[in-house]
Amino acid sequence: MALYEFTAKLGTGEEQSLATYRGQALLIVNVASKCGFTPQYKGLQALHEEYAPRGFSVLAFPCDQFGRQELGSDQEIANFCDRSFGVTFPLFGKIDVNGPDAHPLYVWLKQQKGGLIGSGIKWNFTKFLVDKTGLVRARFAPTTKPEGLSRDVAALL
């Protein structure tokens, strides 16, 4: 399976084919609104704004599997992201990233790039950097701030 064969529901409920992003570099992130890493939304938005004109997008996937830090509905999550961080990158509907109900995209991402202590997602704001051909090039821990990824993103554009 390849990245562009997956679909996922946007926060608005519409099914979105990831083929829409063919030819773009992507940063795919599982996010949460009430996490110590939530301020990273600001850095994600800055990366998106800086590099979108060159063919880059952040794709955010809310997830409530870590510390119950994403309790809201998809609409509440979108309102929070807009109000708090002015997010303009795509926000998908809430998903699971681990376990038997993990979204197929995340099953695939974890197969492509395992983490330091296994392939499972350990916490919110784990990041996968994907090149313009749909290959996963890097995986970054939640502690890696988006501001520190600028050089990696630029190298793919």
Rank of each mutant, 00 (worst) to 15 (best):
M1C: 13
M1T: 15
L3E: 05
F6K: 05
T12Q: 08
T12I: 08
E14V: 07
E15R: 05
E15A: 10
Q16H: 14
S17Y: 04
L18Y: 04
G23Q: 01
A25H: 01
A32F: 02
A32V: 00
S33F: 00
K34A: 11
C35M: 06
F37I: 08
Q40V: 08
G43S: 11
L44R: 13
Q45T: 12
Q45E: 15
Q45P: 10
L47Y: 06
H48L: 00
E49M: 07
E50R: 15
E50Y: 11
Y51C: 00
S57H: 07
S57P: 08
V58N: 10
P62E: 00
P62Q: 01
D64E: 02
D64C: 07
F66I: 07
G67Q: 10
Q69N: 02
Q69Y: 10
D74H: 02
Q75A: 14
E76V: 04
N79R: 11
C81E: 06
C81P: 06
R83I: 13
S84C: 13
F85W: 14
F85A: 11
G86T: 10
T88I: 10
F92H: 04
F92G: 06
V97I: 09
N98H: 05
G99L: 05
L105C: 08
Y106R: 05
W108D: 07
Q112A: 09
Q112D: 09
Q112P: 09
G114W: 06
I117N: 12
I117F: 15
G120P: 06
I121P: 07
W123H: 03
N124Q: 07
K127N: 04
L129E: 04
L129M: 13
V130Y: 02
D131S: 00
L135T: 15
V136E: 11
R139L: 11
A141R: 14
L149R: 07
L149A: 12
D152M: 05
V153T: 04
A154Y: 02
A155D: 15
A155L: 12
